[in-house]
Design a protein around this nucleic acid. Sequence first.
DNA 1: AAAACGTGGTC
DNA 2: TGACCAAGTTT
Length: 332
Amino acid sequence: MPWRIGPAERAAGARPDPYRVWLSEVMLQQTTVAAVRDYFRRFTARWPDVAALAAAEDAEVMAEWAGLGYYARARNLLKCARVVAGEHGGRFPASRDGLLKLPGIGPYTAAAIAAIAYDEAATVVDGNVERVIARLRHVETPLPSAKPALTDLAAELTPQDRPGDHAQAMMDLGATICTPRNPACSLCPLEGFCAARAAGVQAELPRKVPKAQKPTRFGIAYLGRRVDGAWLLERRPDKGLLGGMLGWPGSDWGAAPLPAPPVAADWRALGGEVRHTFTHFHLRLSVMLAELPAGVTPERGYFVPRDTFRPADLPTVMRKAYDLAQSGLAEN
DNA sequence: AAAACGTGGTC
DNA sequence: TGACCAAGTTT
């Protein structure tokens, strides 16, 4: 993985770059390695250090983050970079407790950066570690109630020597061997020590309280294309769902009353709809399309010229609406 | 302290 | 198709 340094570099006394550790750990929050890899490469190529990132335009960073999800992470990433650049002389705090004060850095990320970049014997507990510990120590208490006990048990295993390697080994074990389903116990170096394995219940742990069913919400998106090819978009407010991202003007999502279009035009409904599932609800989005005249002034949003507009700058649900419109246009 | 907050892969 | 899951944080 591009954010790790090799054993040879380590042996030569090199330490991982705290900026790269921080960036990778924030990207990896609730997100898989496969999804993160290319984003990490693009971010570090474009903004090689925290000073460069702190100086970036908000819209550029949000566009580069588009598609990765949990957009509060990108907003906090910028806040954090600017605090580090402006108030800490461009250097990250070198302790777990110092890191914990920064925006977007919680208990997991603070401990991970402290252990990996600064060799602090901090206990790193993510979803992988919770699972490994719940099995190793046969903890039957369901999550999330079990979290404090699992953290205590994990702390008992945290070594003073090479805590960063220990943390990454625990997480890698959870990601590759001690997986949620069908754990590969026969390949596990801890098999002989695993209490859940001895009891034959390893695949059932950790137990979890069932999650509530997701409701379905409905909405409408208006995709306005000016005759010169510019698209009518708007910047979403910084708080809330898809905060700070570009999107199509549209209705609220819920028990949606039909809203007024952003500009008077000959809107036509596209066949089909966009289906998208967020963390806590399903969305079914109807898409309206219109061609707008040259001099029109919209009540919402602003026109993004054709040569500037990139669908990849949109959050996924908005890109799906664009894709549907493209297929609708292609039929004409 | 419960709820909000994205997305893509998997079974 | 759909529920579950992934290197959590914020309010």
